[in-house]
Design a protein around this nucleic acid. Structure first.
Lengths: 106, 106
DNA sequence: TTGATTCGTAAGTCATGACTTACAGTTAGT
DNA sequence: ACTAACTGTAAGTCATGACTTACGAATCAA
């Protein structure tokens, strides 16, 4: 939900691999674990972190659980980056105006 | 430089606080450490991580070093998010077309 | 019901990294 | 040259979290 949890979720390399595997479409836990050199419970724990961050959506299918990327999951992080961009521009503008005042006092 | 290093850099709470403090403008190491409940060396180490990730630019000023946000630093992470958005859309489109094929076979 | 899959979680191990103190280097002022 | 102020780094401690194995729950087929 928050950009903090998204950053924490995507900071781990293994979690990023899993997340990027889901680019191609929904997959099950065992399926995801078969590719990587980690155990199935490890994948399950990573999926929980990604889900809690709002990055995944789950659909039960018999005994299997299909995990897929939630299209709106990355939105909070994107907004965070955007807000930063604006603040930096503001700081830059105030710096310019300050230098203008200083040059006037010469 | 890479989105991986940016994610790692921004994942730590203390590092995020430091980074967000720099929104208002450039500050020195001692200045940044005076606000937070961490030692000055800790801040210095965090600044190194942020700098290595390309998020900061440094300007020497006497014995002091002024750290400021690099405006282009977040660009790789932004591109990463954008590429993800496109991939998810592609997967969604292929899923739609697959369902169309299945409905045709009914 | 029994067995086979698939999955989540509890418990425990171990490595990573965030923090501290101590030390060394650099610059400005007297 | 000496002192003071500011900083970076080395070394060591400690907590967090990523991983394992073991176990229990849920679903489907026989």
């Amino acid at each position: 939900m928050t950009y903090e949890s998204i950053l924490t979720a995507l900071a781990d390399p293994t979690r990023r691999m899993i997340f990027e595997d889901l680019r191609k479409g929904a997959r099950s836990v065992t399926d995801l674990a078969s590719d990587r050199p980690v155990s199935r419970p490890a994948v399950s724990q990573h999926l929980k972190v990604l889900s809690d961050a709002g990055l995944l959506k789950v659909t039960a299918q018999g005994t299997r659980r299909l995990y897929a990327i939630d299209r709106d999951g990355l939105a909070p992080l994107r907004s965070y980056l955007d807000s930063f961009w604006e603040d930096v521009l503001d700081a830059f503008a105030s710096e310019v105006s300050k230098q203008n005042e200083e040059s006037q006092n010469d």
